[in-house]
């Protein structure tokens, strides 16, 4: 099975405002019960994917990144680099045991890689 987009992430200098906007507009719930205090936005709907909001410095532009789940983040980074991608955030093991990285594709768009927590 090919990797799929599993999560979206909004980077925002005003994360509370951004999260509250979508919570109010769509009824999505905001959860920060994780080690980083990451604002997860859950639709409660089986369709589509959930996302979250990560803080950016004041005056930084807001943007959205898509995260693609892969079985092996390191191997995917290597393959992506061979295809012309550059690494923005190297392989990072998050406290809640997800592994992630952020790359820039050859056309300049950034995207994330993630792998599910291991036992």
């Amino acid at each position: 099975m090919n990797p799929a987009v599993v999560r979206w992430q909004l980077i925002s200098p005003t994360p509370d405002t951004a999260a509250a906007f979508y919570a109010k507009l769509f009824g999505w719930s905001v959860h920060q019960d994780n080690a980083l205090g990451y604002r997860e936005l859950r639709s409660g709907n089986d369709r589509g994917i959930d996302g979250g909001v990560w803080p950016a410095p004041p005056n930084a532009p807001s943007f959205v990144q898509l995260f693609i789940e892969v079985p092996d983040v390191d191997a995917c980074i290597a393959s992506a680099q061979q295809l012309g991608a550059t690494v923005i955030v190297p392989r990072t093991a998050l406290p809640d045991r997800d592994v992630m990285a952020v790359l820039r594709n050859p056309t300049g768009v950034t995207f994330g890689l993630s792998s599910a927590p291991t036992a």
Binding site: L36, G37, Y38, W54, P55, A56, P57, I88, V89, P90, T92, A93, L94, P95
Partner: peptide, 16 residues
């Protein structure tokens, strides 16, 4: 978290 992001981005901190 913003500081954390930049430390990782600048390769000054690695979440191993």
């Amino acid at each position: 978290n913003v500081a954390l992001h930049y430390l990782i981005f600048q390769r000054r901190l690695a979440l191993v």
